[in-house]
């Protein structure tokens, strides 16, 4: 096991995440540009695509807001590295902040102080999921504050049903206007409890754009909801236009009989993410 290579690969994963927009997202943006008829909206999409190109060719961050350092870790119970992953991630974040660079985005809520290296209480944050096997998969989601501010939790009365969920999502997208940098990806977490719905919503964002949900009923629901969201006319950057969202992704948990929690997570068009896989022998690779 080469700890140095693990460290370098993690930094490289963060670099890719913030400088190279995933192909599925760029594809969706291009499609949006092709069908856009409003010239103001088309100009916004042109600037976005040009920006994506520059960031990739010059290896500089796509957006100055390189996000809250957040990671999703699927930890195989038989991996020998369970106790060390957290430390590796922290080190990689500190290194990446200086090397890429990332914007130091961790601020003490009480004093306003910014340590300057993207660490702090609970930061970087890791969502743990224990899975079977001997591998560890780490997904980085450097999500910006503007779109995170557009998150919402609605504890709906179960009586409103699926229609109530659709209405709440569309109304929420309209209320956000141009603030979360549309065209967005809308993560919709349904069920569980308040925290679970929000968590599912964020997990939903991680899915590749264009991939249908494996559950056919959810896939149909997603498709319909996307069509409805794009009928609002909010458009790229809120200047009006045909594409308000590139995708709607849904994750569903069974709910309490008395509750219908709805977590709405909005991801800006700069849907940056990277995944690495760490094998039990210490070999590590960036998956995208």
């Amino acid at each position: 096991m080469d700890e140095r290579s693990i460290h370098e690969t993690l930094v490289e994963a963060l670099r890719r995440a913030v400088t190279q927009l995933p192909a599925d997202v760029e594809r969706a943006l291009r499609r949006a540009r092709e069908r856009e008829t409003s010239s103001l909206a088309a100009a916004q999409l042109d600037a976005i695509l040009e920006n994506v190109r520059i960031a990739r060719s010059e290896t500089v961050p796509i957006c100055q807001d390189t996000g809250t350092p957040t990671f999703f870790v699927e930890a195989g119970t038989d991996s020998p590295f369970l106790g060390r992953v957290k430390g590796w991630i922290e080190r990689a974040v500190v290194e990446a902040t200086d090397a890429i660079p990332l914007r130091p985005n961790t601020v003490d809520p009480f004093t306003g102080a910014n340590p300057g290296d993207n660490t702090g209480r609970f930061m970087p944050f890791v969502h743990w999921e224990i899975v079977e096997g001997d591998e560890i998969r780490i997904t980085a989601l450097p999500k910006g504050g503007g779109s995170e501010n557009a998150s919402a939790l609605k504890m709906l009365p179960p009586g409103v049903g699926l229609k109530g969920i659709q209405k709440a999502v569309v109304e929420h997208v309209v209320s956000c206007g141009g603030k979360p940098c549309p065209p967005t990806i809308v993560g919709v977490g349904i069920g569980g409890g308040a925290d679970i719905a929000l968590h599912l919503g964020k997990k939903a964002i991680l899915r590749e754009i264009g991939s249908a949900h494996p559950e056919p009923a959810f896939a149909t629901f997603e498709r319909e909801l996307l069509e409805l969201v794009n009928r609002t006319g909010v458009g790229p950057m809120g200047v009006g236009g045909a594409t308000t969202s590139l995708a709607v992704h849904v994750e569903v948990a069974h709910r309490h009989p008395a509750s219908l929690p709805l977590g709405i997570l909005i991801q800006c068009w700069a849907d940056r993410r990277a995944r690495v896989r760490l094998a039990p022998d210490g070999t590590i690779e960036v998956e995208r």
């Binding site: 916004q44 976005i48 920006n51 520059i54 960031a55 500089v60 961050p61 957006c63 100055q64 068009w269």
Partner: peptide, 13 residues
């Protein structure tokens, strides 16, 4: 005036 959100690399140029 609005600058395209997220277009940080383009702006920095």
């Amino acid at each position: 005036a609005q600058y395209t959100g997220g277009a940080g690399a383009l702006a920095a140029r």
